[in-house]
Measured scan of single mutants.
Amino acid sequence: SDPSEDRAPESARVGNIPSSTSALKVPQLKVAESAQGPAAAHTTDTAGYNAMEESVSREKPELTASTERVNKRMSMVVSGLTPEEFMLVYKFARKHHITLTNLITEETTHVVMKTDAEFVCERTLKYFLGIAGGKWVVSYFWVTQSIKERKMLNEHDFEVRGDVVNGRNHQGPKRARESQDRKIFRGLEICCYGPFTNMPTDQLEWMVQLCGASVVKELSSFTLGTGVHPIVVVQPDAWTEDNGFHAIGQMCEAPVVTREWVLDSVALYQCQELDTYLIPQIPHSHY
């Protein structure tokens, strides 16, 4: 159930021909089969995070001529859309010479989310990475209204306002976009420790780096000194050995919190207090 199309920051360009055919990675995205229709094609874990990302398996898109002007500035990904909605975005992107990729990268400028009429969405990996990267996180209605009015409308009017977990109007995407000089995790050293489900560890690490944190791979690698705040992030329900995560405190002095601390902080683009996310640790033995 991992969102495989989000696994690594590679891009698939639509609308320009790469210098070599080997560089072309066409979105071959799968549809989750469901008797209840597209709305039930998501699996949500206890964290309220949509693990099964969206989309559609299609034939290789038709490439435009390399001489045609390509908008190098805009690059989009989509999240939560049905196959039909994805194809509408594809046509919109081609019309406006926008790069459409299946994986979010540093070059991505827009994340197009499936939302309700009030621009509230589910939480997906692309949603988190879009906010963390200060990108435009907009409703699919931006595409449909632009098509209806036959011009590209202003993104401000379609920015995602909230999500089904953290609140319907928290304005996290807007706050992140306007606060890239004040990253929420700066001054923190974060170790993403142990197993994680539904989200590859490297993507979680990239997320906290985008928010200004330094990533530490091992508990023994924390910088011990003033001005640096170490934090260990774990996902308790992913551990097979009972309560192993309670013993992390015996290996390092850092506070240990659940992954929800990261996800909530990123969604709201406000660093949350650790208290409600802390995992009790077995104290050091004193002999």
Rank of each mutant, 00 (worst) to 15 (best):
E5P: 07
G244V: 06
G48E: 12
V14F: 06
E107T: 15
L219R: 03
E178F: 06
W261Y: 03
F222S: 11
I131R: 01
K174P: 01
F119K: 04
Q250T: 13
K148L: 14
E33F: 15
K25A: 09
D116Y: 01
C252F: 15
V228H: 12
H284Q: 11
P18V: 03
F86K: 05
P230S: 15
Y193N: 10
G37L: 11
Q180T: 04
V208R: 02
E54P: 03
N102E: 15
V262S: 01
A176C: 05
A117F: 13
V137T: 02
N243L: 12
E189C: 04
E54Y: 12
M87F: 08
K91F: 04
Q28F: 08
V14R: 14
K91C: 06
F222Y: 04
L29F: 13
I147W: 11
T258M: 05
E178H: 12
S57V: 10
Y269V: 13
Y127A: 00
V31G: 12
V228A: 07
D163A: 00
V77I: 09
P230R: 15
L103W: 07
E155G: 03
E218W: 15
W136P: 00
D275L: 12
N198R: 13
R73D: 13
C191Y: 11
Y269G: 14
V120C: 04
T43H: 09
T226V: 06
V232R: 03
T226G: 07
V160T: 01
R58I: 06
V143H: 00
E241R: 14
M76G: 03
S66I: 08
S4P: 02
T223W: 03
R177S: 01
G187P: 02
K135F: 12
V137Q: 00
R69V: 15
Y287I: 10
L278V: 15
E155T: 06
T101F: 04
V256A: 04
H286V: 15
T223M: 13
N169S: 04
F141Y: 10
I248Q: 13
V164R: 05
F185I: 00
Q28G: 07
Y49C: 11
D6E: 05
F158Q: 00
T226M: 13
G133P: 01
A213S: 09
T201R: 13
S79N: 02
Y49R: 12
T99S: 08
S19V: 13
E260L: 06
E107L: 12
F128R: 01
F92Y: 13
V165F: 03
F86E: 04
I147S: 09
L219A: 15
R123W: 01
F158H: 02
A41S: 11
Q281M: 04
M113G: 00
F196W: 13
V160Q: 00
S139Y: 01
E155I: 12
F92L: 12
T258C: 15
H284T: 10
F128Y: 01
P195S: 04
S4V: 09
R182I: 11
R13E: 08
L129S: 04
T258L: 07
L129E: 02
Q28L: 13
A12V: 10
I190R: 00
C121A: 10
T115G: 00
P3S: 10
G80V: 14
R150F: 10
T226Q: 15
E85Y: 14
P195T: 11
N50L: 12
H284R: 14
V14W: 14
R73L: 08
S265L: 02
S79G: 03
G48R: 09
V165Q: 03
I282K: 15
V160A: 04
F196H: 11
N102K: 07
I282Y: 05
R161Y: 06
D6K: 08
S75H: 12
V165S: 04
D181P: 07
I279T: 05
M52A: 04
A23G: 02
I190P: 00
M76S: 03
P195A: 05
E205K: 05
N50R: 09
K114S: 09
V233S: 05
G187F: 13
D181C: 11
N169F: 05
V89C: 07
Q180R: 09
E155L: 08
H42Y: 06
D163V: 01
Y90V: 07
G133N: 09
M76P: 01
I98D: 02
G244R: 09
I190Y: 01
I282H: 12
P283H: 13
N169P: 02
Q250P: 15
P230T: 15
A117V: 07
I17E: 14
K183G: 02
T44H: 12
